[in-house]
Write a protein that binds this DNA or RNA. Structure first.
Lengths: 282, 282
DNA sequence: CGGCATGGCTTAATTTTTCTGACCCTAGGT
DNA sequence: ACCTAGGGTCAGAAAAATTAAGCCATGCCG
């Protein structure tokens, strides 16, 4: 049973490592499961090459059946959870979005629909909504309904901002770097400092929200996502000393596994988030 | 995942013990899984009563989704096994039938279709063919194609048979009893010894084939299933000293999960078994 | 009406299975 | 020639199943 899940995930995602991530186990476990399955069948499901695995003809023939079956199972789990707690809306999103964009909007949502509970699960990558039982998924991406068109630009504490007048000033200041969005600095520099070789120097953070706090504490200049620092900018705890803003290639988008029926809690939450409820941060 | 299987089986079969049997685990494991599932949901799926469990409204609402999904998964496994080993036919049957009815026919089948391998799995109860990957199921029952109309009657070794002339003689002879078919003696006595209180006395066997061997060794009189002792009767190692034969309420029947396509190995084996191939036991 | 057996679920301690984490190995890309 | 990405392998740790007892209503029988 677990072996079947491992096979299906590995076949669909094209690798044992990716399957292990989706299943929340280590690649070694996937290896063992697939091998056990192949042993019991007496036939190979994957061809092992040095740079990964490739499905055999047999594996490709039976994959659609398994994918369909596990999709049906995922849907059943979703249905079960929805029936068991009809007034709970489960949202999956990035940790940074959860803390910096969603969290400030929650009081407004609660006031607007007090009977609905909102459960937020932070994760690094968008979940497969056919499998994981979330009602809404909020990520930078290409699918779904656009919630915000986001821009990046440098921000820092007011005291530091006073020392910045041109983009060139950044060469000599500590630049806070988020490990997941490390390319943001390069994207912005390509527009604001064309032709120059800009290499940001400064501490690296694995939590974007922590980098934002450090920027507010005056630790350096952060390449901000506009949507995620709106609160700090409004409060004046962060400032944007330079005018150059670069649009992110992917907008902040919200999507759901299935079409939402109007009036359903998940649909009401989705509508409220798209309408910008609570955008006026205190 | 395993918890979902446990819930589905328990809900469909109406009890944790039955679910444990189908899943091949102990009732304790099913209890633990269902409880874990209910804890995570924050809602009860079963009502516990002193004489078993009953589905809650929530459980009943979501059961069909899970049953359908697991059926699809079972079918996918069947498909996978069929694709991986197309020339292997998997048969599920009772241990007694496997040894006493099927086994003597295998040489004939092998001669008739040498390229087909036949795999026999013995089990006490018919499997759920939507879940367990067997091609054919051969049991006493009401479903499927009739293979043999079976009768029960006393048999014993020739030396003992010489001492039996009427049914009443059995009162004073050891009667071999199969634990799974212990009611056979009563069924036969109701016809052969009407109005008399016949209680068979003698050793109890959990393996019918062993009881047959013991009968051939002269250990006593066995209530035989005609189809299962045909070989011994033909060889003369067992004799039927009394003329009374009682038809079993259920015939020996063969069935498959899905309709068999002509020419398919499973279909050819099914046809051969129904045609009585190899009935002439050496 | 009470004692006792019964069927079915639960619980706790033990054993078996599975997963992890750190390593190795191979082949392609730089 | 090195580095990286992806699988494979192994001993030890975590999780699951088993075993065996316990519980609690029901039903049967004296």
């Amino acid at each position: 049973m677990t072996a079947l899940r491992a096979f299906e995930a590995a076949a669909r995602l094209g690798g044992f490592a990716a399957a292990a991530t989706e299943l929340g186990v280590t690649p070694g476990a996937v290896t063992a499961h697939v091998k056990a399955l192949e042993d019991r069948l007496g036939a190979a499901l994957f061809e092992r090459t040095a740079k990964g695995v490739r499905l055999t003809a047999l594996g490709a023939r039976v994959l659609p059946d398994f994918t369909a079956a596990f999709d049906a199972l995922g849907l059943a789990v979703h249905h079960l959870r929805a029936e068991a707690a009809p007034q709970v809306v489960h949202i999956a999103t990035l940790p940074a979005i959860a803390q910096l964009w969603l969290s400030p909007r929650l009081p407004g949502l609660r006031a607007q629909m007090p009977e609905v509970a909102i459960s937020i699960t932070a994760m690094e990558a968008p979940p497969n909504l056919k499998r994981a039982p979330y009602d809404l998924s909020l990520f930078y991406g290409d699918h779904g309904q656009q919630v915000a068109r986001d821009h990046i630009f440098p921000v820092c504490a007011p005291a530091l901002a006073a020392r910045i007048t041109t983009a060139e000033d950044l060469h000599h200041l500590p630049c806070l770097i988020d490990s997941a969005w490390s390319r943001d600095w390069a994207s912005w520099a390509a527009v604001a400092l064309p032709g120059q070789d800009f290499t940001p120097r400064g501490p690296v953070f694995s939590l974007y929200a922590l980098a934002v706090e450090e920027a507010a504490n005056g630790a350096g200049v952060l390449m901000a996502h506009g949507a995620l620092v709106a609160g700090h900018l409004a409060r004046g705890t962060l400032m944007a000393p330079l005018p150059q803003r670069v649009a992110l290639p992917q907008a902040l988008r919200l999507w759901s596994a299935r079409p939402l029926r109007p009036g359903q809690p998940a649909e009401r939450v989705a509508r409220a988030l798209q309408a910008g409820t609570g955008d006026q941060i205190p």
